[in-house]
Design a protein around this nucleic acid. Structure first.
Lengths: 144, 144
DNA sequence: TATTGTTATACTCTATAACTATA
DNA sequence: TATAGTTATAGAGTATAACAATA
């Protein structure tokens, strides 16, 4: 298979186009990608340490301290002390933070649904049929 | 169809995961998304005005002036005057800019190809079969 | 006057280095 | 000493407002 016909080279422009489209939207709260990632992680996994958030979201530790500070000032997260280890700060998402996640998610979903509505029904079916495989592909990103 | 089962709500997490994965890569040159978008556009469409780049990439005009300035200092684009209209600046990509596009593209493609290599062959086939439909879906983002 | 682009200024986001507090 | 986190500082990136040059 020639390089320019590889599966990755075919999928990349599709991803790039969809992502650029979503990025250029004026979503209601307009959280930064990393901020949304942190909120979603806290929602999924519960209270977490600064150090762990920094590692998992691939930012520096000071960067995460500052992001958490901004999120806290915005009322989206709370910081609490760890009872076992006085050095540790535990960050948890607030109800307001969860509401922001829900609004942003709903907005992105509605935008994608509008794209599907403009598409040929046969194409829609083909994509829907491929979603489980795409989910497994996306799952591979966590594996390695 | 219930909201949480809509096509958009199924596609969104897949997109989010793949995009987060690609964004967190340490690509060789690490261009910003907008910078890469401008370079790719110039490569595709030839010399362009600041105003047009700003509109098409959805940045402010001063923002585009500044981005083009950074790209110029990095040797990735050239600015030339328009012979017909003395107000206009034409921006064009350099060979070095094209090389950066190629390196970045190759890196992303190789990363995606590695994901496919870890996937069940049947899933790969399903995704490849859906690529034309996905391309048309992505194309709808430009339509309206 | 309208259009093209730049400069001035400020804010967000992120990084590295140096620091404090706890283990 | 090592670890968790913060503070200090700087740079990239982007916005709005005010400006200069050309049409």
């Amino acid at each position: 298979m020639v390089a320019d016909e590889s599966r990755g080279s075919q999928l990349l422009p599709v991803l790039a186009q969809l992502v650029r489209f979503l990025r250029q939207l004026d979503s209601p709260d307009n959280p930064s990608p990393v901020a949304l990632g942190v909120l979603r992680r806290l929602d999924r996994e519960g209270p977490s340490r600064i150090t762990d958030l920094a590692r998992l979201e691939r930012t520096s530790q000071p960067g995460m301290t500052q992001l958490v500070g901004r999120l806290e000032r915005a009322g989206l997260v709370l910081r609490t002390a760890d009872a076992q280890d006085g050095r540790v700060v535990l960050v948890e998402v607030t109800e307001e933070g969860r509401a922001l996640i829900a609004r942003t998610h709903a907005y992105y979903v509605a935008t994608l649904d509008k794209l599907f509505d403009r598409l040929d029904p046969a194409d829609c079916e083909t994509i829907v049929a491929a979603l489980p495989a795409l989910e497994r592909l996306a799952g591979e990103t966590a594996a390695g």
